[in-house]
């Protein structure tokens, strides 16, 4: 699975993207967030507050209960501020 981090998530976790094997027990976005938060350091800092996290799976906006599978592209970012 590919994970992309944008804006302050990239800065806090100090990584733009990474490929990981779907961790045991991770079935949806919620459980992936739990797994990321438990990694410690910048990840914990980035994902502890879930209020302003937006997520896309395979480049489509989804809610936290969206199912995940190996091979998905998951992206974390704050609310959008373009224009």
């Amino acid at each position: 699975m590919k994970i992309l981090y944008f804006a302050h998530f990239r800065e806090k976790a100090n990584i733009a993207e990474e490929d990981i094997d779907l961790p045991a027990g991770v079935e949806d976005v919620n459980s992936l967030l739990d797994w990321l938060e438990a990694r410690g350091g910048g990840y914990t800092d980035a994902f502890a507050d879930r209020n302003h996290i937006r997520v896309a799976v395979n480049q489509e906006h989804v809610e936290f209960d969206a199912a995940l599978k190996d091979g998905d592209e998951v992206a974390f970012f704050p609310p959008m501020t373009g224009g």
């Binding site: 992206a75 959008m80 501020t81 373009g82 224009g83």
Partner: peptide, 12 residues
């Protein structure tokens, strides 16, 4: 422009 600002993945 209204939808772009809140639905297109840009960050400033």
């Amino acid at each position: 422009i209204d939808w772009l600002k809140t639905k297109a993945p840009f960050w400033k």
